[in-house]
Design a protein around this nucleic acid. Sequence first.
DNA 1: TTTGAAATGGGGGATTCACCTCATTCAGCA
DNA 2: TGCTGAATGAGGTGAATCCCCCATTTCAAA
Lengths: 215, 215
Amino acid sequence: MSHFTAVIADDHAIVRSGLKAALENETLVDGHIIEVVAEAGNGLDAIGTVKQHRPDLLVLDVSMPMAGGVEVLVETRRWAPDTRIIVFTGISAMGKVSELVEAGVDGLFSKAEDNQGLYQHVPMILQGGRYISPFFTSILDNAPQRSALTDRERQILNLIVAGQSNKEISTHLGISAKTVDRHRTNLMQKLDVHSVAQLIAYSLREGLIDPAAEV
Amino acid sequence: MSHFTAVIADDHAIVRSGLKAALENETLVDGHIIEVVAEAGNGLDAIGTVKQHRPDLLVLDVSMPMAGGVEVLVETRRWAPDTRIIVFTGISAMGKVSELVEAGVDGLFSKAEDNQGLYQHVPMILQGGRYISPFFTSILDNAPQRSALTDRERQILNLIVAGQSNKEISTHLGISAKTVDRHRTNLMQKLDVHSVAQLIAYSLREGLIDPAAEV
DNA sequence: TTTGAAATGGGGGATTCACCTCATTCAGCA
DNA sequence: TGCTGAATGAGGTGAATCCCCCATTTCAAA
């Protein structure tokens, strides 16, 4: 029987309280005790809180104000390499799944899933294991090529979603409008869409781009 | 001291458990007791569950699969007129706020808010009161004209976001492509955007349209 | 009854998009 | 050392957008 500390980061207070209750529930197998020592409502707070508390466990949401889940994950790995990191996300960030796995997330759960998953797998994760919910494994298998966007393509996708025309993007990046056009064509081929509308809708729905990104 | 029944509808299990815990917490003022008799993970389930249980209180999320919060609200009003309805929503559905108020929601809370609001205002709502979080009142005051879209405009906005061209929309609705073009122009004027990209991004971000709507 | 908003549709024109082909540069890699 | 992928950019074409102009009909509110 051991005692673990945890930090929860989510921009919704009601989700934080739900996660806290689920984690601190005494019915965890093996008699583990988890204490939530701090909560954070945005990405920057989350990073600061992790640096301060260096918890055993960090529970993260992907989409948060100020800094996204991936950034918090990377920063946490730098400042608290022993902290186990699990991510809780909704369908709004499917495009981030492969990114999270590559960044070395220790656990990946869906918000739609039953809390049962937490009770079963968190102790194993705390002991060094890694768990990806079946909810996401199909995404990792089925669509590896879709998220294979280059940095430049992702950057231009952000500007397209921001509502900028090819000409505006070209002056913004200091390249020819024809090049932007080429990137746009490549993007639509890669993502298998046939109009700006579908491109934008798909990007926002799948969480492929960061709505608050600095471009 | 009275005993109330409640139904919770949200597509995220972790949110449901958080709400359930908050509602059933015994620290409610006036010694009220609330019992959560059922939960629903999508809009259709929510409607069925309400018809079956006719609870005193219905806690709703705006964005759910199968049927949105507004539809559930209207259906509930029809089948269980005495049920008090409170809506819990994130920033993703700001455009629905005025719609919810017009539909006669009894309580409106933000998911980002502290649970304190629940404890303070739910008993009052159960006794016939109505409460809109300050979080949303500014939206109602500042942007009344933006959401003043007509039914036809909203319908066409849905099809635009779905990626259909003017010609596709025209054949779909059995009207001229020129008329669709006119509606599109009106939409962009009303929403103060200058491209499809901005139109779509704005609509999705503000929750102005229903991503799962039947068109 | 008149006024106005909403929906319908046509003509026209400037601009932009979407998608071809073709070509160059440059970095990483077997 | 050649090869591949990424980024760059030109020329051209047909389609679609965006925004003016104009009009009619319907329907509800003043």
